[in-house]
Design a protein around this nucleic acid. Structure first.
Lengths: 198, 198
DNA sequence: CGCGTTGCTGACCAGTCAGGCCAGAATTCA
DNA sequence: TGAATTCTGGCCTGACTGGTCAGCAACGCG
């Protein structure tokens, strides 16, 4: 009975995510979102609510996707520690450094909005806690398998690893070279996760 | 012969820094700056140029002050390593967590603006490099005095320490408790800067 | 073939934005 | 005192903001 949607919701959200990611929340106008999504203002507001709700939706999907990807990778790779290393290199996986400079949508958003938008701060905290949880499991598994010194407190170190990774991402936003970023990440990781044969 | 300034430039810059710090760049209107500084639009534009120039000036002074403070502390304290530890706790030095949640003006600005304002990215990189340099010296001194394992590459570890600190500050913006932040920072620091007796 | 329900479109709103401008006040020197 | 100069703060502009809404279009059901 109703007229069906003419747009692919997923594609729209993806397009809008790119804009928020590149420009930040406040600097993104609804006009930008209209142009990126190809939708009219009415459609946008009808489907997603206002700018704030739309942003939160984008952010939540981004976080969920990241968490899912992280969990999948850590479950399938026997040497979880290797992935944790790779993970700590953050977004600097391409050699151009372009994606490294783009940074992380969650980290950027939190830095910009945590003060003025409590729900963004809460979402960030939820996501970081989830990441730390996944990391903790991976580290514990690595300890069982003898890849990490069993003497360290996995939960505590997980937050330290998360912080180091966040810091590397933050440094990446300045346009620092990917080699320097990788070196800092590698240096942090090898010390935060000492192998048992030390 | 000219009419002298009626306002204290330093106080004005300080007031404006607070606004930018709390609200971010894009969300701060020139009206906000006028109200915070008590100046009219003409005075503001005459003395500092447009919003962008004003922001850059605030950011540069903020960074210079931080660098100077860091250098002073590290020069006067015999056990540099202790201060590095303290430094890594970042802005979480009050128990309320309010300043921890406010974060760091430089980190916030970089996350918000690095993509769209290359001069902000450049200033951030300059400041981070300066911080890393200061840290490197402090770590080397600590190595000479036997407080840090002389086997580690001070320059490399300095960036790892900087990253860890930046990450802790980023976590702090989510409203995470100061104890958790301090624990993560402490955990990162003791592992990044191992004492030689081990 | 209507009819009800929903989606789409674009015009429109009041409010805010950054920035330019200027008349007059304030200050100094001659 | 008068001339020169600069500061000051309000006013103006016109572009843009996020958001609303009335009217039209497309669909399935009866």
């Amino acid at each position: 009975m109703p007229r069906p949607r003419e747009f692919d919701e997923e594609r729209v959200v993806a397009a809008i995510r790119q804009v928020f990611w590149d420009k930040g929340y406040a600097a993104t106008s609804v006009d930008d979102l209209m142009r990126a999504s190809g939708l009219g203002k009415g459609s946008l507001y009808g489907a997603f609510g206002d700018k704030h709700q739309l942003f939160l939706r984008v952010l939540r999907e981004y976080n969920d996707t990241n968490d899912r990807m992280l969990r999948e990778r850590l479950a399938s790779v026997p040497q979880a520690i290797d992935f944790v290393r790779e993970f700590a290199h953050g977004p600097s996986r391409d050699s151009t450094g372009a994606s490294a400079q783009r940074g992380c949508l969650l980290a950027n958003s939190t830095a910009e909005l945590a003060t003025s938008m409590p729900d963004v701060a809460a979402e960030a905290r939820r996501s970081y806690d989830a990441t730390a949880g996944i990391l903790t499991e991976a580290i514990e598994r690595a300890q069982c398998e003898g890849d990490v010194d069993p003497g360290v407190d996995a939960g505590e170190v997980a937050y330290a690893v998360l912080a180091a990774q966040l810091g590397v991402v933050a440094l990446g936003r300045t346009g620092m070279g990917v080699e320097a970023l990788a070196s800092a990440a590698e240096s942090a990781l090898t010390r935060l996760l000492p192998s048992p044969g030390r």
